[in-house]
Design a protein around this nucleic acid. Structure first.
Lengths: 226, 226
DNA sequence: ACCTGAACACCGTTCAAGT
DNA sequence: ACCTGAACACCGTTCAAGT
């Protein structure tokens, strides 16, 4: 009831905030296809061209939406081991991306480096540096975790997971056993890891494992002999 | 000169193969936006509706393109350690995706489980099972590597890497140092790992590291006491 | 200052018609 | 059997005009 979104209002004053709010509503409701400048204008009760008085084009509108979305992520980090904290941080991102798939699509156009997005990088880097990784190793490790999470949201999170599993299983069982011995014998396992939060966590732990096992984890000796 | 593509021909006989060939040419030349049913028809020297005699709609045309593209991947595996072979396999995929970015975008709509695509899964699973992973662990590990590779191609491979790096560096250096201590002090390192083949390999090795370190790597005792 | 309608150059696809 | 033109319901955006 205290929701900041007020899509119910028939014709409140037009502001950038209200435009973004309604645009996000369209995206949340119907995905990327649901957002057109014309539909947005209609939802605002305004002529198609009016929105252009607030955002020069659709691209800059989308940039503003992404900025809003990255700023909304709540990055409270609870005390604990750094592995757990890093894990929780990426789970936070994953859950937001899965709940708002349009963010995944929109962020694909280019790397987002706005202040709001950088809060996340800051949190991740701090954890890895406190864990004893060098600046370079921390940056590389964080990037890998980050890309994996976006990749999972983009490529392993279909709208209907059960249907995707069913479809995949049927396809695997159609393959000739002699040409595809591993796939056909592992059809169940493959289907199980195709999608879903559990498999996301499993891959995440695999990567965290790799980070812990990395050589350059502790900083070099206090004073290099130079 | 022995190229199978014959876009130069003004009006060869219309076949599904020629349509797919020309469509792939449009995609390779101008990306996803370059492919419209109307432009495709124009490139074929034919009326817009003619293509619909061969593919019922744009979606099924895209499915056929993806199938062609996955079948074209040459999966020769050279002798060596399984880690190296697996690494090479994913590098092969990465290089194809970076060279043909439209594949990345098109495959996002849903998991692709056609026979052509499954050849890749078969190769990866075989390597991991020969390495001694259980069927379940092999499936999970392969999926993680696969998703990471697609994620990297989709989110860390902008058309102009140098421009992306420059833009990111400038953005990092604009941030307030007291709010973003880790990001601002690591700006150079962050920019270095933002994109590029080297960082792809670094993350890939991190994950391979995690797979090797995993507990359930050797199969259970010959005969479980049952 | 803020909003608008008409128009332009595009889409994917249906439908009835041509050869 | 194979191809087509006209039409429909959409896009993003320019431009000249309205208040």
């Amino acid at each position: 009831m205290a929701s900041p979104s007020r899509r119910a209002d028939p014709r409140a004053k037009l502001t950038p905030e209200r435009i973004l709010d309604v645009a996000q509503g369209l995206l949340r409701g119907e995905g990327t296809d649901g957002l057109s400048m014309r539909r947005l204008a209609a939802a605002l009760g305004v002529a198609p061209m009016t929105v252009y008085g607030y955002f020069p084009d659709k691209d800059s509108l989308i940039d503003a939406i992404i900025d809003t979305e990255t700023t909304e992520l709540d990055l409270r980090i609870v005390p604990g081991a750094w592995q757990e904290q890093l894990r929780d941080l990426l789970i936070l991102l994953y859950d937001q991306l899965v709940a708002n798939p349009f963010v995944v699509q929109l962020r694909q156009r280019r790397p987002v480096v706005s202040p709001g997005a950088m809060r996340f990088t800051e949190a991740g880097l701090q954890l890895l540096q406190h864990a004893g990784l060098t600046v370079e190793a921390a940056a590389a490790a964080f990037r890998t975790l980050f890309i994996y999470t976006f990749g999972y949201a983009a490529f392993a999170s279909p709208p209907d997971e059960a249907a995707a599993r069913r479809h995949a299983l049927a396809a695997c069982l159609t393959l000739p056993v002699d040409e595809y011995p591993a796939v056909t014998s592992a059809a169940q396992a493959l289907t199980a890891v195709l999608t879903g939060r559990d498999q996301f966590l499993r891959g995440l732990d695999l990567i965290l494992h790799g980070i812990k096992a990395e050589p350059q984890k502790s900083p070099p000796r206090k004073r290099p002999p130079s």
